[in-house]
Amino acid sequence: MIRDEEVRHIAHLARLELSEPDLARAARELGSILDYVKKLEAVDTADVEPEIHAVSISNVYRKDEPRPSLPRDEALAPAPSHDDKYFRVPKVIE
């Protein structure tokens, strides 16, 4: 139902590193779920609009009025790596 190759691609898109056994297991589990989901094919939805939201709200806006931002130390505090000014990440290799 779903090939290991496809799962590997999906895992890369989702930034998940799967070991070979994990990959095979994921393919099996996803396969059985996707098989189950196949039952939807029986429903004719040609003329049915997809509903993104469960309620029909529209046009929700905010006025363009500034509010105070977070103190910098509070903004940086939850980060796994930071100095007193910046978040830090491993260097991007171009």
Partner: peptide
């Protein structure tokens, strides 16, 4: 501005935060 001084939970993408559209931007 000084780095990371114009930020809040929403624009930092902190868990649980939600966007609200600025009408003027529209």
């Amino acid at each position: 501005a000084e780095p990371n001084t114009l930020v809040c939970p929403v624009c930092l993408g902190m868990p649980g935060t939600l966007p609200v559209l600025n009408e003027q931007a529209l």
